[in-house]
Simulated scan of single mutants.
Amino acid sequence: MWQSIRCIRQASRFRQGLDGIAVVLFTFFSAILLAGPALAICQVVADAPYKPLRPGEVRVWNANLEPDQVSIRYIGHSTFELETPQGIRIATDYNDIYRPFLPPTIATMNGAHGTHYSLNPDPNIEHLLYGWNRNGGPMDHDIFVGDVRVRNIQTNIRGWDGESRRLGNSIFIFEAADLCIAHLGHLHHRLTENDLLRLGQIDVVFAAIDNSSTLRLDSLMDVLAAISPSMIIPMHFHFAGALPAFMGRATEQGYRIVRAETSSVTVSRSTLPAEKTVYIMMPGGA
């Protein structure tokens, strides 16, 4: 009997030891996860796994950015340059006229016309993401590069002849530093419920406000209200009167208007405006 009791006690101590090891391992891996790059989760259900270092890989953090910050610079038309804490640089609507000074790590393009895509992209771009399929059909992206996730949602577009081109545009979503940033591209129609569900909660949106070749103001304001971002950064306002018209409509609908003094801004979740804001930057070139 005493031998049986001793065996039971030993088994109990063994289980307690395993429980203790489990707690230590859980704490250890939780600390690693919390120390990792702050990938945002825009969608209600979205995969945003922790991406461990590969053998020999070293994390390089931009000394000018905190781990929760993203830098945004307006180059021109609909081209922005985003930079993440790990130094991943992204150029939106990369083309042969408006380009960042250095080749970006990631370049996104759209199929509207020549100021939204490049015929001669820099060969040093590591990830060139077309927003449309040049051979027809869908073109889906969902990639992780360093501390950023990039995915897209395709929408239809109008050609110069007025006819609809199916899946000719992409909304690109950038998830980094606990922020979700969306570039609407050359959007030509209101978003569907499925589009909004896939888009998820967006913090900052780049929106074309030309009121001519993309969405008219009535439709655009409906789209922005449906997305409900904290910050709207206008783009594509090359037509005379487009910017004042948008500012007037946004003011009517309760947006705070901020005129930036420079062509760049650093954003973080802690500094997002408490009230819905239109943040206007003038293009700064390369």
Score class of each variant (00 low, 15 high):
38 A>F: 06
26 F>I: 08
31 A>D: 05
20 G>V: 08
17 G>L: 13
54 R>K: 13
48 A>F: 05
105 T>F: 01
105 T>H: 05
95 N>S: 02
122 D>I: 04
89 R>G: 01
122 D>L: 05
90 I>R: 00
126 E>K: 15
100 P>N: 03
48 A>Q: 07
115 T>A: 09
88 I>P: 03
74 Y>F: 12
67 P>H: 07
35 A>W: 11
10 Q>S: 11
102 L>Q: 08
140 D>I: 15
85 P>R: 02
78 S>K: 02
87 G>D: 01
37 P>W: 03
114 G>S: 08
113 H>M: 07
124 N>W: 14
56 G>D: 09
116 H>K: 06
48 A>L: 06
79 T>D: 00
45 V>H: 08
70 V>C: 07
58 V>Y: 12
126 E>D: 15
35 A>P: 04
142 D>P: 07
31 A>G: 06
39 L>I: 10
73 R>M: 03
105 T>W: 01
54 R>I: 10
36 G>Y: 06
109 M>E: 04
141 H>I: 13
38 A>G: 09
70 V>Q: 04
81 E>Y: 01
65 L>G: 12
146 G>K: 05
62 N>W: 11
120 N>S: 15
37 P>Y: 03
101 F>E: 13
71 S>P: 03
124 N>Y: 15
73 R>W: 00
141 H>K: 10
39 L>S: 03
116 H>F: 14
67 P>F: 06
22 A>C: 12
47 D>Q: 10
112 A>Y: 10
140 D>A: 15
56 G>L: 10
107 A>P: 01
64 N>D: 10
83 E>F: 01
19 D>R: 14
102 L>H: 07
115 T>W: 12
27 T>W: 14
66 E>A: 13
76 G>K: 00
114 G>K: 00
124 N>D: 14
94 Y>M: 03
113 H>A: 07
22 A>L: 14
103 P>C: 07
127 H>L: 14
122 D>T: 04
92 T>W: 01
94 Y>K: 02
77 H>W: 06
69 Q>A: 10
85 P>A: 04
95 N>T: 00
67 P>A: 09
35 A>Y: 09
26 F>Q: 06
85 P>F: 01
14 F>G: 06
121 P>Q: 10
94 Y>N: 03
60 V>F: 11
21 I>S: 14
97 I>N: 00
36 G>I: 04
145 V>A: 05
83 E>W: 02
130 Y>F: 12
132 W>G: 02
143 I>W: 10
77 H>P: 02
82 L>P: 02
70 V>E: 05
82 L>H: 01
69 Q>Y: 07
19 D>Q: 14
44 V>Y: 06
65 L>R: 10
126 E>W: 08
48 A>C: 07
115 T>I: 13
113 H>V: 00
66 E>Q: 13
102 L>I: 06
99 R>M: 05
74 Y>S: 03
24 V>R: 12
38 A>D: 11
140 D>F: 15
140 D>E: 15
41 I>T: 09
67 P>R: 08
93 D>R: 00
147 D>N: 10
53 L>I: 11
18 L>V: 14
123 P>Y: 08
120 N>Y: 11
58 V>N: 14
45 V>D: 08
130 Y>L: 13
27 T>R: 15
119 L>K: 07
122 D>C: 05
114 G>E: 08
65 L>S: 12
43 Q>L: 05
144 F>W: 12
85 P>M: 02
110 N>R: 01
99 R>I: 04
79 T>V: 05
74 Y>V: 03
130 Y>A: 08
100 P>T: 04
15 R>A: 13
121 P>M: 09
139 M>R: 15
89 R>L: 01
